[in-house]
Computed example of a mutant assay.
Amino acid sequence: MMKVINAQSGWTWVKQGFVLFRKRPMELLSLFFLWMMLTQLLRFIPVAGQFLTLFLFPVFSVGFMQACRYLENEQKITPGLLFTGFQSPHVVALLGSGLLRIAALFFTYWFSNLINDEALSEFMKAAAKTGPMDAGSLEKVLPVKAILLTVLIYIPFAMAFWYSVPLIAWQRMTLIKSMFYSFFAVLHSWKAFLVYFLAWYGLSILVSPLAIIFLGIDINIGVVMLTAMSFIIFVIVYCSSYPTYTDVFGKPDEDNQAAV
């Protein structure tokens, strides 16, 4: 059921993400902007709005994964596809995944502060008081060690969540079982994932020089171009997550399709 993938596959996944995106870029971007619009609307809800975006993230993710499957099968992508997860018989498990993601973030934040003497809390309070800081000021106060430790603490949770959504939606797994399989699938193919994330990190760095070029021409054009490139990269990254699933667990068949 679960295959171990070699390191080279990490770069292959990135390339496959670009291939999928090139098939129907405007339809994918439209789906993304619809998602962003709904997310911004949720943020208007006092207090709960911030948590609702995380809570509903796994449900909306089903729509994006299904969109990637449609791309592979040369099917048309419609805005309604974004709400596929809400029609799934496994919507409760998907919402449970959202709750666990929120809990994982709280635990990571709490544990990091416990070890680092509230370094993250102090930084966030200082940032809230002073507002936006320039690069020099930010470098002086940024708790680099605390942030790195926070990332390390969250990695096991990220591994458990990586495949949980498609495993729930397409393999009909329970929430805990999906997280178990997800964690060990990523662990067994850690070399491929290391290459995958390093590749995306390197590609994202290339955006900055391009932005600087446009900023040198006109600051308004630069900001618009940087924002547009960030949106496109996000969508391509999401497209590339689909082959990470199909390489390890196989392509969802018609029975799996009916599950969503």
Rank of each mutant, 00 (worst) to 15 (best):
I236E: 03
A126Y: 12
Y242L: 02
S204A: 15
G250Q: 12
Y163S: 12
S164V: 12
I102L: 08
K125D: 12
L149M: 14
W11H: 01
L142W: 13
E74H: 15
L194C: 10
A128C: 08
N113G: 11
L52E: 00
I155A: 09
L152M: 12
M36W: 12
I45S: 04
T130C: 07
M36I: 15
S182K: 05
A259I: 05
V59H: 09
Y181L: 13
L95M: 02
P166G: 06
E139D: 12
M133W: 06
L138T: 09
N256K: 03
F234Q: 08
A7L: 08
V186N: 05
T84H: 06
E139A: 15
I155T: 11
S208P: 02
G80M: 13
V224R: 15
F184C: 11
V165Q: 05
K145W: 07
F33T: 06
T227C: 14
C68F: 01
L175E: 04
P252G: 05
L194N: 09
K3G: 00
G63E: 00
Y154F: 14
I102N: 00
M159I: 12
V223E: 13
L114V: 06
L210C: 03
F18W: 07
G49C: 04
H90F: 01
A199L: 13
M26A: 11
H90I: 01
L167R: 02
P156H: 13
N256T: 13
K23P: 02
L29V: 06
F86M: 10
G85W: 03
F111E: 04
M36F: 12
Y181T: 15
L203S: 02
S137A: 15
I212L: 11
I153R: 01
T130E: 15
A48P: 00
F184K: 11
